[in-house]
Simulated assay, not measured.
Amino acid sequence: MRTSCRFSISIPRPRLGRWERRSARSTSRCCGRSASPFRTMSANNSRKGALHMENNLTYTRNGDYLIPDLKLSEQPEKPLGKYGRMRKAYLKEHRPLIYNQLLQTEKLYPHLLEIDETANSRLEQMMPQLAESAGATEELKARDPMRWVGLMNTCKAQAEEILMAELINS
């Protein structure tokens, strides 16, 4: 004789929180998605709120890719000095948003040139004042040249520290 047994095992399910219960219902309301993935929008709804932009760019085909033909305006060939390069490195590392904005609007190179020229003129202006306050005179230069060089190096380091704080890293 054959006996059949039926077992009924009841595994408790974890209780769903209110967010899990509502997720299926509220997807269509809060996210703008419909419950059916095949639902399409009509022609009137597809343009609603969309921006219409003209694309006046030309493209070059490179294999399977279309690469836009972007040209920068001519920049002067004057090389950047020490302080312009330091400003560029600071902007690139610590202020990438400002760096990219200046780069994309083609204002980066004029900005760096202006910083470099301003820093050099400020350095020329500060050095005699700092040398005088440190006691680096022509008499000291003739009497003890090594001490005079040390004082002038100290003055230049002080001036560059001021420039770094005021112009380069601001």
Rank of each mutant, 00 (worst) to 15 (best):
R33Y: 12
W148E: 05
K156F: 05
L97Q: 02
R147V: 05
W19D: 14
C30T: 10
K48D: 12
R147I: 03
E93N: 08
L112A: 05
L113E: 08
N56A: 10
L112E: 05
M152C: 13
A119R: 06
S36W: 05
E166F: 02
A134R: 12
A35D: 14
S170P: 01
M1K: 09
L167Q: 04
I67T: 01
S133G: 06
G84C: 06
M164R: 11
M53I: 12
P79M: 07
G32V: 05
T105Q: 00
P76A: 07
E160R: 08
P14R: 14
R85V: 05
S28E: 13
S121W: 03
M164N: 15
R2Q: 08
T118K: 12
R143S: 14
R2V: 12
H94N: 13
L72Y: 07
M53A: 13
L112T: 03
A142S: 14
E132H: 10
G150M: 08
G17Q: 08
S42A: 11
K78E: 12
I115N: 00
A89S: 05
M152E: 09
N120Y: 06
E166M: 04
E161A: 15
L123K: 14
L97R: 01
S46P: 01
S46R: 15
M53C: 11
H94T: 05
Q104M: 11
E54W: 04
N120H: 11
W19P: 02
R87Q: 04
T3N: 14
H111Y: 13
A89I: 00
R95V: 01
G49P: 07
R87M: 04
E132Y: 10
M41W: 09
L72M: 15
P96Q: 01
A50Q: 14
E138K: 10
D64V: 00
K107W: 00
P68M: 00
M164G: 14
E93D: 13
A157R: 15
R18F: 10
G32E: 11
R143T: 14
M127S: 04
Q158M: 12
Y99Q: 01
